[in-house]
Design a protein around this nucleic acid. Structure first.
Length: 546
RNA sequence: GGCCCGUUGGUCAAGAGGUCAAGACAUCGCCCUUUCACGGCGGGGACAUGGGUUCGAUUCCCGUACGGGUCACCA
């Protein structure tokens, strides 16, 4: 068979040479050891945690080495593509603080290695497809779906591996050029298949996170180009990551099993394969077992979930970093004030088994992250979130900017600052008592204070003696005096020792006060809160009880 | 089913051929404290399993079980 003739027959319109294409994608000039990484999401409209997970790795690896991190849209499956998905994806990545040096952008492309949407690189793939045909490494296949199904059934019955390979590929492989031309002229659809070689040899690949991976070499005649001329993932990956000069391919572990195909393709095209980094799958705990996060059942898989919940992007990053690099938490403890970008990310510290998405852990990290933020930053980020998800609260924040800032600062400047806020959504709930518009009574007063006469007596006395400008000591002395007068223990320990001698302790009294002022038992220091509320509000809330 | 990957407390995890198997989250107790937090101290809780190799294995090898992935003209 004259393969050159076949190549011309199959790709008459493809006139560029591989060399010309190579010249269009020059080797990058970068510092030594700089890494070039990317994410290659499919525009399905659903942006999930896994996308961010791999983006975090790629971004860190590239940027900490002075390299390049880019976005490539893998839209080779038109059936799954959703309108506007690319914009959604870019917006989500931006929201979570992932910045690309180059790649697909909402309004086109940014960078010279484009196009960055695979659907627009058809001609490029065809040049290399044609080269493979010319070298006898690829051939057109006219097998119909039914024929393939029939083969698979036969293979299943014979307990053989399913697929088009070896003798099962003979029918298509042995077509003469005349027969191929006839088929094409008759309008038959065809795909381009790689000509696999039956082999017992194993391939050995050094994975950056898993170490040496050994598996049987490829013998499949897998599809390179689909009948619409668009490449499969396998072919597009090899061509693009070579031309775009990726040094590291970071992707989920579900790709490990197709690694032999990719290695074979790199070899066939005479290219050096990138360093592969197969990451662990994100898992979820259910009924005592772990399972892969599912798009349908688990809202927390969607990136939008974290946005809606108001988890700060920084917290999500830190959470992912603790999952990704086992020494991250240690590093954070040693460098409490450092930016997470200063952390030296390493493949060596990556976990191989599937990590569980643990909301408790996320919340704990989030409290720390927000605890470290400046009040102004909290204000800005919280307000930004409210503008999108809680208009009413956005209104309150902007209506009372100073009060809000003061409220955020309550208890934060102490030696052991409070960590009350775990998300912007929860902040709206936690901070609601500061505003008259949202103030509500959430908690009941303790039973020691259930007596109405006692309650009235306390509030009457408190209001009477209340002086807004009292300092902490004077103010608390007054509280103690009233406590004593009402027959409550001033020292909680005294009450603990002799519960019969008192009606209760100062704990119950302050708890009553706190609920009156904030509507809840869980709130920061009463006097500090009072000063944020202002005298008028304080008196108003107290008057309700006298 | 074939092939591949994995298995240390509830979760994330460190770990070396050989003292009581780190740490974090969660949980419980105590302390601090005018509440709640924050913080501090402490408790409970783990090397899937059977064989080897070895003086000795959680660590190395083989098998088994379990979990996961993949076997498309989807990525």
């Amino acid at each position: 068979m004259d393969f050159s003739k076949l190549a011309e027959l199959l790709f008459p319109k493809s006139t560029s040479t591989p060399e010309e294409i190579e010249a269009r994608f020059p080797v990058r000039t970068l510092p030594e050891n700089a890494c070039v990484t990317r994410i290659g999401p499919s525009p399905t409209g659903f942006v999930h945690l896994g996308n961010l997970y791999n983006a975090v790795i790629g971004e860190r690896i590239a940027h900490q080495s002075g390299g390049v991190f880019y976005l490539r849209i893998e839209d080779t499956d038109s059936k799954r593509e959703v309108e506007g998905a690319v914009e959604t994806l870019i917006r989500a990545m931006n929201y979570f603080g992932v910045s690309f040096d180059e790649g697909a952008a909402a309004d086109g492309d940014n960078g010279i290695y484009g196009p960055y949407r695979q659907s627009r690189r058809r001609e490029i793939y065809h040049v290399f497809a044609k080269k493979l045909v010319r070298e006898g490494l690829a051939y057109p296949c006219f097998l119909t779906e039914d024929e393939i199904n029939a083969i698979r059934e036969q293979q299943t019955a014979n307990k053989e591996n399913p697929g088009i390979y070896g003798k099962y590929a003979e029918k298509s492989r042995s077509l003469t050029i005349e027969q191929i031309k006839e088929n094409i002229d008759a309008g038959m659809e065809w795909v381009l298949r790689y000509r696999g070689v039956m082999t017992d040899e194993y391939i050995s690949v050094e994975d950056a996170v898993r170490g040496r991976l050994e598996m049987p070499g490829n013998n499949m005649d897998f599809v390179l180009l689909k009948s619409d001329g668009i490449p499969t993932y396998h072919f597009a990956h090899v061509v693009d990551d070579h031309l775009m000069r990726s040094t590291h391919v970071i992707r989920g572990e579900e790709w490990i099993s197709s690694l032999p195909m990719h290695i074979e393709l790199f070899n066939a095209l005479g290219w050096k394969a990138p360093i592969y980094c197969h990451t662990a799958t994100l898992m979820k705990l259910e009924n005592g077992g772990k399972r892969k996060l599912s798009k349908r059942k688990d809202p927390e898989l969607a990136l939008s979930y974290y946005q809606q919940e108001g988890i700060s992007p920084d917290a999500v990053w830190e959470f992912l970093l603790t999952l990704l690099n086992s020494n991250y938490e240690e590093w954070r403890i040693a460098h409490p004030e450092a930016d997470y970008r200063e952390f030296p990310y390493s493949f060596k510290e990556m976990s191989i088994s599937g990590a569980l998405v643990d909301m408790d852990k996320l919340k704990s990290i989030s409290k720390d992250v927000i605890g470290r933020m400046s009040a102004q930053r909290i204000y800005d980020e919280w307000l930004g979130w409210c503008r999108q998800y809680n208009e009413k609260f956005a209104g309150l924040i902007t209506k009372y900017p100073e009060k809000t800032l003061a409220a955020i600062n309550v208890g934060r400047n102490a030696a052991k600052p409070r960590k009350d806020i775990e998300s912007w959504k929860q902040a709206c709930d936690f901070m609601s008592f500061y505003y008259d518009e949202t103030f509500t009574l959430c908690d009941e007063m303790s039973e020691q204070c259930s007596d109405e006469a006692l309650r009235k007596a306390f509030f009457a006395k408190y209001i009477e003696s209340y002086c807004h400008d009292d300092d902490q000591a004077v103010w608390f002395d007054k509280v103690k005096a009233i406590t004593e007068k009402l027959g409550f223990a001033v020292k909680p320990k005294d009450f603990k020792k002799n519960p019969d001698q008192y009606k209760g302790s100062i704990v119950h009294i302050t708890n009553m006060l706190r609920i009156a002022l904030t509507g809840r038992a869980n709130a920061p220091d009463i006097r500090e809160v009072s000063h944020v509320l202002g005298e008028e509000t304080v008196r108003m809330r107290l008057d309700m009880w006298k």
